[in-house]
């Protein structure tokens, strides 16, 4: 798998049952790293939204779009390192929190209204993600 793009949305790629040879639990440090890059990933979506709200082909548009590519690039590289240190299922299940980050940034930065329907929908999606990633575990 080349770096740059990971197959992070692919729940079917082969995975170790435990990333560590001795089978020990991933360290707290790995989880901090994991959630930092998940946060970074959610910021790529923020940049995409900012690009979308900028005038098409304006300097701001290109700047935000470049932001998308840079953040996705960094994310992909760090993700490869993180999944060396923990089971892929754990990493993918945790990645489901991007759903929450999306609502958080939407409400905070774009004054989007988060209603009960959205929270319920997001919770159902999150449950679905966890089931899917643990189905092969």
């Amino acid at each position: 798998m080349p770096p740059g793009i990971d197959d992070s949305t692919n729940p079917n790629r082969p995975r170790p049952t435990s990333a560590k040879p001795d089978g020990s639990r991933p360290s707290a440090r790995s989880f901090v790293f994991l959630h930092l890059i998940i946060l970074l990933y959610s910021l790529a979506a923020v940049c995409a939204k900012l690009a979308a709200t900028s005038e098409l082909f304006s300097p701001a548009f290109f700047a935000w779009y470049a932001g998308v590519l840079v953040l996705l690039g960094i994310y992909a590289l760090v993700w490869q390192q993180v999944i060396k240190r923990m089971p892929l299922t754990t990493a993918f299940a945790n990645k489901g929190v991007t759903v929450i980050w999306g609502m958080f940034w939407g409400a905070l930065l774009f004054a989007e209204h988060i209603d009960l329907k959205m929270i319920i929908g997001a919770a159902v999606v999150f449950a679905g993600i966890v089931l899917v990633v643990y189905a092969d575990a």
Binding site: A51, A52, T53, Y65, V99, G102, E112, M118, V125
Partner: peptide, 14 residues
């Protein structure tokens, strides 16, 4: 990016 012109950021990751 084209989609985000009219899709809420909160909907994107979902």
């Amino acid at each position: 990016v084209i989609a985000y012109r009219h899709v809420a950021l909160s909907l994107g990751p979902i």
